[in-house]
């Protein structure tokens, strides 16, 4: 994994964070440095090593299909930055997902 120059603007777009020009420059450098440190991992021979997602092994944790109480609507709507009646309101959506 060669440390390519990270396209901070593209990544910030994916992460939905607006960046100023200053930030783009600063993060580009900092993230580049960090990736440089991270590149030491390429020294590890991992071809035959399985990936670990969870370090404490576990499987089949499920709950019984039983319905329980939901939260009070006023409680949740009172958190909303903007609401309209019983709904959460957001600015216009440009496109389907």
């Amino acid at each position: 994994m060669a440390s390519e120059k990270i396209d901070v603007r593209y990544v910030a777009k994916l992460a939905r964070i607006a960046l100023s020009e200053d930030e783009v420059e600063r993060f580009e450098k900092q993230l580049g440095d960090l990736l440089g440190h991270v590149d030491v991992l390429s020294e590890l021979e991992t071809a035959a090593v399985p990936a670990t997602a969870q370090v404490v092994e576990s499987k089949n944790v499920e709950r019984a299909d039983e319905a329980g109480p939901s939260l009070d609507r006023e409680t949740i709507l009172s958190m909303a930055p903007q609401r309209q009646g019983a709904f959460f309101r957001v600015p216009k959506i440009i496109a389907e997902p």
């Binding site: 939905r16 607006a18 949740i76 958190m79 909303a80 930055p81 959460f88 957001v90 600015p91």
Partner: peptide, 18 residues
């Protein structure tokens, strides 16, 4: 910025997120 916490307004929902 949709359900709780801070929202900084934007012209559309994408700008609002960012």
């Amino acid at each position: 910025g949709v359900r709780y916490g801070l929202r900084v307004d934007g012209a559309d929902v994408g700008a609002m997120y960012e």
